[in-house]
Simulated scan of single mutants.
Amino acid sequence: MFKKRFYLSFTLLLMLFLVSACSNSDNSSTDKKTEKKNTEVTLTDAKGEVVIPANPKRIIAPYLEDSLVALGVRPAAQWSIGDTVLDYLQPELKDVPKIGWDLPLEQVINNNPDLIIFSSPSAIQKGQYEEYKKIAPTYVYKDEVSADWRKQLTQMGEILSKQAETKEALADYDTKVAVAKAKVHDAIGDESAAILWVMADKFYLMENNRFSANVLYGDLGIKQPSFIEGLGGAAVQWDPIALEKLPEIKADHIFLVSKKGEPGLDLLAKSSIWNGLDAVKNGHVYEMNDPSNWTINGLKASEKTIDEVVKSLTK
């Protein structure tokens, strides 16, 4: 009788042990699946479905650095053409290594990224998409998303699992716009303004939706000269405007955007046409010596442009 009870008890203990072991095994398997799920994000980009790390540490996103900085992220390397970088971001990116605008494969490998982000399919040079994918998970923006900096930033928040930071950054920007818009309206009322970019010996007038013109006319509500209204939206090919046509703009204020030393600035200084403009005669020309934030779309760029516009018009 004793032996029978002993064997029965032993059998029950053995069964409990096996059930417990199986249960632990199942939990372990579930934990591993959950862990994997929490460390990866599946998104749809311009190329289809892509699986990327949920919290990437080393990111290369050429010409998208504005969105990274807006979300408090330092890239592993920053876009450049020779020594040219996005100057307005250098307070945050001063010590970040440069990488060629066309992302040479060897340079990408040397920077050891765990995520590569392209602004559009056309930004991928030499059809090397598959080669980049072998280096690190690669996300490619859709053109219509990257073209609108708000959409671009929102998508970056999705990619980096920083949706809360994105929402806060956009809310802060809207608050900044509201305050600046009131100051500008108090300062110049219904007076108009234009943005003229001088590069080499050429002059480029910004249409109402090109780069920083979105800030001037869209965000801050500054009046457009009739000439700019007549230009319509920005075309893919941006042709320079002739010096002789500048009087037709009839802008009360002109933001003259150019790096110092451009030959076009000397042409303007010596031109009776330029010196005859009302904005010039009235002292309403404001020289912006860092074109980088005026000639790109982005939250950080727009914030800097707002600061410079307010400072110029309210002093």
Rank of each mutant, 00 (worst) to 15 (best):
Y204R: 00
S212H: 06
D201L: 07
V285P: 01
A194Q: 02
D26P: 01
R74V: 06
W238D: 12
Q155T: 06
K183H: 07
D143K: 08
K134N: 06
A235M: 14
A251N: 09
L256Y: 09
V85K: 07
S302L: 08
I188V: 07
N24A: 07
S28K: 05
K223Q: 15
D83Y: 09
L13H: 01
P263R: 03
D87E: 09
K202G: 07
W294N: 02
E130R: 01
A279P: 07
G221N: 08
N297G: 13
N111W: 04
K304T: 10
L196P: 09
I306G: 06
G72C: 08
V145Q: 06
I99E: 13
E65N: 01
T42G: 00
E131M: 12
D26N: 13
E248V: 01
D278V: 13
K260L: 12
G232I: 03
I254S: 00
G72F: 08
Y141P: 05
T44H: 02
E287V: 10
D266S: 13
T39K: 15
F10Q: 08
Q237M: 12
Q224K: 15
V85C: 06
D31M: 04
R5K: 13
L14M: 11
I222H: 00
I109E: 09
I296D: 13
P56V: 15
S271Q: 05
D278A: 15
K37E: 14
Y204P: 00
W197H: 00
D239Q: 11
N38I: 10
I273C: 05
S272A: 15
S258Y: 13
G298R: 01
Q152W: 04
L13Q: 03
E244P: 02
W238S: 08
L43V: 07
N209K: 05
G233Q: 10
N112C: 03
D290E: 15
N55H: 12
S119L: 05
D201G: 06
K260M: 10
L105P: 03
V309N: 12
T34Q: 10
S28W: 03
P56Q: 14
I296K: 14
A77R: 03
P56A: 11
N110I: 12
L71G: 09
N208S: 08
N275C: 06
K181T: 00
E40H: 10
